[in-house]
Design a protein around this nucleic acid. Structure first.
Lengths: 172, 172
DNA sequence: CAAGATTGAGAGGTCAATCTTC
DNA sequence: GAAGATTGACCTCTCAATCTTG
């Protein structure tokens, strides 16, 4: 990601140059996003784990479920929205089930399909965790920008990937 | 992350409301970033793996090394810049060493400290991979924004986390 | 003993193979 | 046989314990 610096090395190394380098604007936009995302995401994961005993992964699954009008989703769709492989979502739901946060019930209409639903306890725990989520993301990112910045960001994401902000059926 | 929707459920469930919800601007800025980052990052990882046989993790370590004027860094600093735990960077360097991309040499001044350096072969492989990196990130993100967007993004990252764009000593 | 680095155990992910239901 | 979901083998990260050097 960074530009290569010509080191005043004594050896005459015949070194390959950086190919098709980013412009400084491209570089700033991309590296900044990587770093800010990494920092905020890790802080969020740590804080959720510390205060509620589950991480961003479990939080993401539950928040996806609560978004559904019926509070339940087929495990396949759930996996797609979380950007997880079939095995990944299967294991994740497994852990959440053991923790009593979600239930898996066979779809009565199709014995192959499984419906994953939030338990009442899961909903309570999720609501508690949302306080942490909002606080951490505000502290580490949102509160440091003004309203105009936020609006611009939202527009840019939507411009870069239509549906990124609005579509409910989207990974993450 | 999404807003809860009041479902017209027949049961009178006494449900906890979403606490301190995000404004719609906050929501768009944050969810958009999560989704765009996830999509671009995964595409990049897959493409690097497919074309060069190593993923974003290995790429990140090598690009961090090449940034250093001497092309080598103490393994500890390297881990911090990559946002990896001591064990994480240790294992990562282990893999890269076996692949012949980096070397680990004991620091002559302090027998406890290890210096990790890019091999000539590693430098060549990195330069090749950079082409993929630039192409994928441009295709999936940068090219969909105009120059003004990019400038604004860079300014916003720097505003949210001073040093995010400029500082070399920073995770990721 | 303190700092730097590695190793063992365990969490959470992927792909390929398998099992079940349509 | 195809679709939906799980399981086995393996990979990579983290934390805690350990080894080594100052």
């Amino acid at each position: 990601l960074p530009k290569s610096s010509k080191s005043p090395s004594p050896t005459t190394v015949d070194e390959p140059p950086e190919p098709e380098p980013f412009t400084s604007d491209e570089f700033a936009a991309w590296r900044g996003m990587l770093r800010v995302h990494s920092t905020v995401f890790r802080a969020l994961d740590r804080q959720l784990q510390a205060e509620h005993g589950f991480g961003v992964d479990a939080y993401g699954v539950m928040i996806t479920l609560v978004t559904s009008p019926t509070r339940q989703l087929p495990i396949g769709s759930l996996g797609e929205q979380r950007n997880l492989s079939p095995s990944g979502i299967s294991r994740s739901v497994d852990r959440l089930t053991r923790a009593g946060l979600v239930t898996r019930t066979t779809n009565p209409d199709d014995g192959r399909s499984l419906l994953v639903g939030l338990t009442p306890h899961g909903l309570v725990r999720l609501r508690e965790a949302q306080v942490t989520h909002h606080r951490v993301v505000r502290e580490t990112l949102l509160a440091r920008l003004d309203e105009r910045d936020l609006k611009r960001l939202g527009r840019m994401w939507e411009k870069a990937m239509p549906g990124a902000v609005t579509s409910p059926a989207w990974p993450l």
